[in-house]
Design a protein around this nucleic acid. Structure first.
Lengths: 344, 344
DNA sequence: TTGTAGGCGTTATCAA
DNA sequence: TTGATAACGCCTACAA
């Protein structure tokens, strides 16, 4: 049995109040008492019980980060930054995966599970239907949304300008002389807003450049995975006319697409240029290195944690919408061998 | 204020005992009572407070997974499997990163922080000095070690046979005709046991094959990162005689090494064969696809969770040592284009 | 089958 | 400055 406050108090011959004061660094404690208590604490190897403390104070010091899949590089890199940012505010982070399970997302928002173990939730959802968010009762649990969704003033959220990011990527392909530009990542379901926005950016950029492409150039990809990218690009390479560029809605899709293009006997970027979004480290080391739209993940993480911390302090704080910066990073997959920033 | 058990009892005109019985699914409750209570619960939107429950029962339903860096693919893939395996046992998982900070590892084992918020710790440490482990008092917190360390019967641990895995990798290079085989990932510090074991396997395989290589062929890599692999391979390619194969202690090192070899104007595997360890998905899509030693991560995760769950049930259970299976997966980076298992 | 009451380890209130 | 004591919300003997 671990020692309790009372054990320490008994050994030190003081009241529990005094021990508590010493432990929590209360100022008005005489040096004599403090020493006596500290000795007893060492003697018994006492550590405060965080659960009891939480029951009293209502604070757990834990945040939940909810992502679709932690092994998707974008999310694991985000998680790294969130954990670091949270640590600076004195929080630890529990990570939950929803898979591609809407029901699980719903349960989490509803607060079914052990939700109250957290002081707040950072939620990076698949679905952003507002009905889903209606289920969340923010009075009970601070929530910050990561990624796009329509901002309605109810929730904090931090995201990039997806339309703009997609436009920038496609404009780069146009600028490097591509005309038959395909896209991978559109979604058949309207529930997902990120693909919708990126599709909008894609179409806007094509329109601005005065380019028209076959409808078949916009290919879906259910999970934004390497495998999806591989399959979609394989299909695209069989089209006539064949695309001379592929804009992928994520770097992971792009990695799969590049492999598929190579397996089809074609060369990147000579035959087909490829660009993604995210700027995961894998893309920097790929061959050819992957052009992409770089998201400022540390910024996103920092802002998200800053907002949730503020909302925990003051649950009534007005919701904020933070737009994270992005920038185009042109590498070999659009420029050619040896071009663009190198390793490190 | 969220509703409490007492609020429900009051509204339903029953005792808290009855409400508690209904909530926790106790059998002997009359249907009439149950309905009355359920109505009140819905009315008040009552959810049990897990913190209070924990204070009573001593169980939080949470496990901590401690890894050096969550954005290293091996660890994020492991985390995915651990989270899934934990969910099957009714546990959720908090993830903590130690960075490369020994002090932080020490604090975690000591139980400084909010350790008691967890029912158990799955610890994948950098350092395995037994002094470090001496600090952990297992009476207070079930602990399962992931990854290699000397088994002394005090702690459960699950790991692959590192010496054997390294030997298998090098033996494959030998079997495909390589003679000047270098290694990336040895560590200058003896505190890390995984590199030591893999180095031992490397040397044993060379000896068995009757091969001798310059001492400079064994290059260090502090963080097992792509960047480390890139730097080490760049150095190796400048040696005379140049290696005709590189055994990397992780796939991430191998990814960096392949890029470095290409940047040096050499071809994989024609000029230099490359093999790694881990079998991360990135390697399957790399060009050339990466030969590797595949670890059964789901198995490792399942066993680790199984052990920790058992130890939580029975803290006095004898420690177990579980050896996870591994197998060689030969792909293009040792066999040549189009060889080995393809995508998906 | 249901009600009452005590305690899990802290923090916070109220006196002294 | 310190001590006694009541919560925090839940579970569970013990009684009825």
């Amino acid at each position: 049995m671990p020692a309790t406050l009372r054990d320490v108090a008994e050994l030190a011959q003081v009241s529990v109040r005094t021990v508590s004061n010493v432990v929590s660094g209360y100022e008005h404690v005489s040096e004599r008492m403090r020493q006596r208590v500290l000795t007893a604490i060492r003697e018994l190897d006492y550590r405060p019980n965080p659960v009891a403390r939480t029951l009293r104070t209502g604070r757990t010091g834990m945040l939940a980060l909810v992502v679709p899949e932690i092994d998707v590089p974008y999310f694991s890199e985000l998680a790294r930054d969130v954990i670091d940012a949270a640590a600076e505010h004195g929080y630890r982070v529990m990570i939950d995966q929803t898979g591609h399970d809407h029901e699980r997302e719903r349960r989490l928002l509803m607060g079914d599970d052990r939700t109250m173990l957290f002081d707040g939730i950072l939620f990076s959802p698949l679905v952003t239907k507002s009905e889903l968010l209606d289920m969340h009762r923010s009075e009970h649990m601070p929530l910050v949304l990561l990624g796009e969704h329509e901002f309605d003033g109810r929730f904090d959220h931090v995201a990039i300008d997806n339309v703009r990011a997609a436009k920038d990527a496609v404009a780069h392909l146009v600028a490097t002389g591509r005309t038959r530009i395909a896209a991978i990542g559109a979604q058949p379901l309207e529930e997902y807003s990120t693909p919708l926005l990126r599709t909008a950016g894609y179409e806007a950029a094509l329109a601005e450049a005065g380019l028209e492409v076959p409808a078949a150039y916009a290919t879906p990809a259910p999970h934004y995975s390497r495998t999806d990218g591989y399959a979609a690009a394989t299909a695209l390479m069989a089209l006539d006319p064949r695309p001379d560029a592929v804009f992928c809605f994520s770097d992971l899709l792009a990695v799969g697409a590049m492999r598929a293009i190579a397996d089809a006997g074609l060369r990147v970027p000579d035959d087909v240029a490829v660009i993604g979004i995210d700027d995961i480290e894998e893309g920097r080391f790929a061959r050819p290195s992957l052009s992409t739209v770089s998201l400022d993940t540390p910024f996103i993480a920092r802002e998200a944690v800053r907002r949730i911390a503020a909302r925990i302090e003051d649950p009534g704080a007005a919701a904020e919408e933070v737009v994270a910066p992005h920038r185009l990073v042109a590498r070999e997959s659009t420029l050619g061998p040896g071009e663009g920033p190198g390793i490190g």
